[in-house]
Amino acid sequence: MPEEQVLLEGLRSGDETAYELLIAHFQQPVFGLVQRLIDDHNEASDVTQEVFLKIFRSVNQFRGESSLKTWIYRIAVNEAYNRRRWFGRHRKPETELEAQEPGRSHLDHLHDRSRSPYDLVLNEEWKSAIEKALAGLNPAFRSAVVLRDLEDLSYEEIADVLDISLGTVKSRILRGRESLRRALIEQFEPARGFAFSPQPAD
């Protein structure tokens, strides 16, 4: 990709515009991906900075065997995985002063006036349930599902990012989705409308 080459040349030569462009283009995808993989907003910010630092420092080592996006995602997944492991060993229980999600205020929920309070509550419940299910997922399956369903990467790109075979990608996505489905079924009783029992078609 010519634009990618130009961007890489700029990064290698220290062109400030290229650095700005890379940040503008990738900060949100990287942050979103990291956040999905480690569940903690503040940690996600730190990891995102580390990911970009690693990108800047190792841009000379990028050989162009994969796309720039895949290479960046690979760094992000590895950093998130490392942080998650470190976090798992060193984290101590903390009590938040305010019972609200980090980075979001109660006002955020009131902006959408098109939805009824019931919709909002149900929607929040759904989001909370899926986030909880995602958090409980095996990290290997989680990376595959997040890259496929949230980042919309192809199976080949996922294989490249996670450095695994296509067969393993397929298996991990299947098992990840299946685990999520089961976790959601466990959270929602059938009476609340989350029973996956469709009727056979006519």
Binding site: F31, G32, W126
Partner: peptide, 10 residues
């Protein structure tokens, strides 16, 4: 559901 969950902005 996964796709509907909004991504927090930077």
């Amino acid at each position: 559901t996964l796709r509907d969950v909004p991504v927090r902005k930077v």
